[in-house]
Amino acid sequence: MNRIFFYFALSGLLVLTLLASDSKLHLIHADRSVGRIENGEKIRYLVGSVEAYQDTVHMVCDRAVFYEDRNIVELIGNVLIDDTHHKLWADKIIYYSSDKRAHCSGNVRISGVNDSLFAQVFLYNFSIGDAVGKQDLFIWDKQNQVRIWGDDGTYFSKISESHISGNAVFHRYEPTGVDTLIIHSGYMSYYGSGIRRAVARDSVRIFKGTVRAVCDSATYLIDNQLVYLQINPLAWQGDSEMKSDQILFTMDSLKIKEIFLEEKAQVTTLADSASQKYNVLKGKSIQVSMADGTPERVIARRNAVSIYEIKDRNIDQGTNSASSDSIIVHFTLGEVDSISIIGGTEGTFYPADWKGEIKSEY
């Protein structure tokens, strides 16, 4: 049978040094303190308005269990730890005073001047400010207007760097809350200092206003307001699909201004839903200029090809196929207004009842 010895019981305890060294844990207050020796180990049970500190780390909770020989304290109920740089709240924290590590569980929140973290479980190092979160992770970089969600992740506070795995979601928002860039991925790395950027990998999905896109790898450069899509990129705006080897979004105040398609570029737009006919624009590169979330001008360069359905008062007149050095498509209110064909032009008109293949030179 385990032998238990009571070695003190104090009520209304105000100040008691648990260990004499300044680098160890000191108790400031507890309504009640009971000490025991269990299996040869000294254990102190603290109940009611518990308050303690170690160096600059200050702790409060409802009750605590202190394992003196191992320099471990278990803080339970309404736990708050403050190290002057970050505040940490949790239902329960196991604090290892020898190296200032904390295992936090239950509604964990870590808050600093410029950042806040939430998760059900955190491993936090007060010496270096690093945190490993698990279960329903949320990171809020207030200074950079960034919010990140995910299953699990690691956060390095001194360099403002995060790595998230499992159902990662990245939001960059304007302070007004009107415009938001949203990126979903399997894995996400976020760098909030230096070259500020987010790098998404695995099943990437991007949403920005009327534009949505998918790829296997994407990089968002915050200061340059550029989004690079690589590895099988596809993008859509309205009834148009855009594809190429690489896609680049340029933004201003989180509004997409230009979309660049590089190498094997193609834009396909539904021309008639009833007949399932499409307008097609191809080139080695294509530049899409946007205004108010809709295309304003599309330029295909180098071996440009256009296949466009011609209508008069919504009546199908036929198909025009053209190839040239460059082709410019102008839009009014999101609809094709005119097409300019520049340099080395060749073209073919196909009547509406044409049943054969529509060809182009390129």
Rank of each mutant, 00 (worst) to 15 (best):
Y228A: 02
Y173M: 03
F138S: 11
L261T: 09
A131Q: 10
D216F: 02
N232T: 10
V288H: 02
K359T: 14
D292I: 01
R313G: 12
L13D: 09
L254F: 14
N125K: 05
G238F: 04
G293I: 10
L46S: 10
T268A: 07
K359N: 12
H103S: 08
K134C: 04
A30P: 08
A168I: 07
E361H: 13
D337T: 03
S340I: 02
Y124F: 15
D337H: 13
I182G: 00
F156W: 06
A218T: 10
T219C: 04
Q230H: 08
L75S: 10
R212Y: 12
S203Q: 11
D239V: 10
S275A: 15
L19Q: 14
P295C: 07
D312N: 13
W149N: 03
A322F: 01
S340Q: 05
I256P: 01
I110L: 15
Q54M: 11
V211F: 08
G153R: 06
I247Y: 01
V199L: 06
T180H: 03
S160T: 12
A119T: 08
A90C: 07
F260M: 07
L123A: 07
I4Y: 07
E309R: 05
N114D: 15
G238A: 06
T345R: 09
R63T: 12
S360Y: 08
V60C: 02
T154D: 05
I328F: 02
P295S: 08
V132S: 10
L137D: 04
G133Q: 11
H171P: 01
D245H: 02
S11K: 09
F118D: 10
L137G: 07
